[in-house]
């Protein structure tokens, strides 16, 4: 089936098998391997991307369902070579251990800040209920999101 999907601002036309999941479309058709596959069962959140600005799990979405829609992946967050404040905060505060969950954590938390720009620590923890860090490195992840939220309050960014 012919689809036209905009990913990170660029439109891609592809002829795909309807059973192709969005995460496979991103990784295998477009080579955007920053989006990870973790559990395959919509629990772990490693595959989180933005669909029309909202966080979704790309392992639980067929690529044909998002025909004509806008996707942002972890590769699309940095602008003009400058990391997104969330990426910077994860780097500065070491919001990762093995790093596998990191793209999903960053996409989920940037989507969350769009709905609640100044969350409490407890709210941040609640917002991560769909993202698992198997290393259990949550302390620094939460600290990074808090730091990014504060920075973005001072200098708002697009995403």
């Amino acid at each position: 089936m012919q689809v036209s999907i905009t990913v990170n601002g660029k439109r891609y036309e592809r002829n795909i098998d309807p059973r192709m999941l969005l995460v496979h479309f991103l990784r295998e058709e477009l080579g955007l391997t920053g989006t990870n596959i973790g559990c395959d069962t919509s629990q772990c959140g490693a595959c989180t991307v933005h669909l029309n600005g909202k966080g979704v799990k790309s392992c639980t979405c067929l690529a044909v369902q998002v025909d004509g829609m806008d996707i942002t992946t972890i590769e699309g967050l940095a602008q003009n070579g400058a990391l997104h404040p969330m990426q910077e905060a994860f780097w500065e505060l070491h919001g990762l251990q093995c790093g596998y969950c990191t793209p999903g954590m960053i996409m989920a938390s940037t989507a969350y800040l769009a709905t609640n720009p100044s969350p409490s620590e407890e709210e941040i923890r609640g917002s991560l209920e769909g993202n698992f860090c198997r290393c259990t490195g949550y302390q620094n992840i939460v600290a990074a999101i808090k730091s990014a939220a504060e920075k973005m309050q001072q200098e708002p960014v697009g995403v």
């Binding site: 919509s42 989180t48 669909l51 909202k54 799990k57 917002s127 769909g130 993202n131």
Partner: peptide, 9 residues
Amino acid sequence: VGDPMVRNR
């Protein structure tokens, strides 16, 4: 239900 991403879809 589920988590924020599940509830979005």
